[in-house]
Design a protein around this nucleic acid. Structure first.
Lengths: 267, 267
DNA sequence: CAGTGGTCTAGACCACTGG
DNA sequence: CAGTGGTCTAGACCACTGC
C-alpha cells in the first residue's frame, strides 16, 4: 500500500471516503482516518459491544481490521483515552473505562474533607430516603431531553461521613433505561451508584456538567442535613451524559461546606 | 541514524542519556526522549525565552536542534498543547499560550450569567477598592510558599455586570515579582488581570486550584456586593500557579449566585 | 516466551496560512 | 509559492505483563 491511499483499493471497510465526489461547491468536510476509527470505536462502546472493564481489541487487531497502520489506530485510541472513555495499560491492553475501579471512583464527586483526602474518613454512609416513579415536570423533562409528563424515577438520598450528614441529593432518571431500579437495589449495592448503573442497566456516565450556587437551607434540607434553617449550602445541579452526549441523569445536590469543600482543579 | 539510538554518537545535545550507567540495582528511571524535549521547552518557557503570544521554533527546527525525528518533537508539543501551555495553529506555527487572547480570556473564571453566555452582558466593570503592601499572615504565607511576615501586595476589587456588583475579590501577590504594581496600573489596564501580569511582570498563570464553599455574607461583603447580611455567597479560594507549580497568587472571591452560577464541566 | 502498549524513525503527502 | 502544522505509513525496537 502506498503512502497515498488508493481510492481504487476495494474491500476497504467503508473508511477512507472523505470527499471523493468533489462535486460543485464547498462541502470540504475533510475527516481524517483516525477520526473515523474513533467514531467506529465510539459506536461499539455505545452499542455495548465492549463492556466497561473489558478489553477492546489490540491496536494491531484494529489496524488489520481497518486496513490502516497501527499509528493511526493509536491516535484514535489516544484521544478516547484522553477523554476518559478508554484506559490503557501497558503490557495488558486497552480497557473500557468504568466507575467501578478503585482509582477513578467518584470521578464526578468533587467534595473533599477539609483535612485529609477523600476516603480518609472511611466509606460514606448512604441512606435512601425515597425512590419513586413520577411524571417529569417541564424543567426536569427539558434537562433530560424528555417530554413533560414522561415517567421518571426520582431518588432522594443522604450521604454521611463519620456520622454527619453532608450531602442531600435528588436524582431524576428516565424510567425506560432504568426499568427495575428499586430502593432495595440501591440500598444493597456496594460501591458507587454509577457503577451499579453500568452493570445493571448498561448505562455509562461519560461526562457531566455542574451548575453551582450558594443557597440558604430550607425546611426539608435543613432537617435532613441536620443544620439550622438558612444555613448556607452549596447547591450543585448536575446533568450527566452517556456516549453521544445524551443526558441521562439530573441530580440536584445540597452540600454542607462546614467540614468539606468543593474542589476544582483547572489546567 | 539507526532506529536504535547509538550511544556512541557524539554531539547529541545532552539528550538520550537515560540510564546508561547500568550500575547495580534499580534506578531504571527510563525517560522517553519526548519527555526530555518537553522538559527543555518547559525550561525555555519558564525562562521567558519565548514570551506569551510569540511563536516557538517550528517542529522541523526543533527536530534538527535535538537531532530527533519530527514525530518525537511533535509528541512533546502535543502534550504541552493539551496542558494549555502552547497553542497550535495550522499553517502558522505553535505559540505560547496567553491570557490576552479573546478566545481563552478569563480561563479561570467559571462564573456565567443565568441567561446568555459569558460576555453577553457586556464587559465587566472593575473597581479597585484597595491596593496596598502588607505582611503575610501565616495562612497567606503558607499558601504562597512564603515566610510569615514577608511582604505581599493585597488587592481588593469588585466586578460588576450590567451595573450589579457580582464578585468581590481579595488578591494576595508576593511583593518581589510584582514590584511596581499599583492601583492605578490595575485600574487603567484594559483586559484580564492575568494578561497584565504577563506583559508587565513576566508572570504567566498556568494552573489553578479552587476550594469552593457556601458562606453567609458578612458586613463588608454585604455592603460591597449590595446584598443583605447573611445572604448566601459562593466563597471561592483560588491558588494560581506558574510554570513548575510555583504558587504565585492567592485569591479569595465572594460570588453572588442569584443571577450567575459557577459552571464546572467534567470529562 | 508471546502479546500488549509505548517510543522512535524517515519519509510522503495533505491542509492551511500568508506573502 | 514556501513554510507551517496535520495525517499516515511501515517498520524497528523497548517496556511491561502474564503464562
Amino acid at each position: 500500500m502506498q503512502n497515498t491511499p488508493d481510492p481504487n483499493t476495494e474491500n476497504d471497510m467503508v473508511l477512507r471516503e472523505t470527499s471523493t465526489t468533489a462535486s460543485a461547491v464547498n462541502t470540504p468536510a475533510f475527516s481524517p482516518l483516525y477520526q473515523q476509527i474513533k467514531g467506529f470505536i465510539l459506536n461499539s462502546l455505545r452499542a455495548s459491544e465492549w463492556k466497561p472493564g473489558e478489553a477492546i481489541p489490540s491496536e494491531t487487531d484494529l489496524a488489520l481490521r481497518f486496513q490502516v497502520s497501527q499509528g493511526t489506530v493509536r491516535k484514535a485510541i489516544d484521544e478516547l483515552a484522553a477523554e476518559n472513555l478508554l484506559l490503557r495499560r501497558q503490557g495488558k491492553g486497552t480497557f473500557v473505562a468504568t466507575h467501578a475501579e478503585q482509582q477513578v471512583q467518584f470521578r464526578f464527586l468533587r467534595l473533599v474533607p477539609d483535612s485529609g483526602t477523600r476516603g480518609s474518613e472511611g466509606p460514606a454512609q448512604r441512606d435512601i430516603i425515597e425512590c419513586r416513579r413520577a411524571r417529569a415536570s417541564a424543567d426536569i423533562a427539558k434537562a433530560l431531553s424528555l417530554r413533560s409528563g414522561d415517567t421518571v424515577l426520582q431518588v432522594r438520598r443522604v450521604l454521611s461521613f463519620g456520622g454527619t450528614p453532608v450531602i442531600l441529593e435528588d436524582i431524576w432518571l428516565p424510567a425506560v433505561p432504568f426499568k427495575g431500579l428499586t430502593a432495595d437495589r440501591l440500598a444493597n449495592y456496594q460501591g458507587p451508584m454509577y457503577a451499579l448503573f453500568e452493570t445493571e442497566f448498561n448505562v455509562r456516565m461519560v461526562r457531566a456538567d455542574e451548575k453551582i450556587r450558594a443557597v440558604a437551607a430550607m425546611g426539608i434540607q435543613a432537617t435532613l442535613l441536620k443544620v439550622k434553617r438558612n444555613t448556607p449550602l452549596l447547591s450543585v445541579e448536575r446533568i450527566a451524559y452517556t456516549y453521544q452526549n445524551e443526558p441521562i441523569e439530573l441530580r440536584r445536590g445540597y452540600y454542607r461546606t462546614d467540614t468539606h469543600y468543593y474542589h476544582n482543579a483547572m489546567n
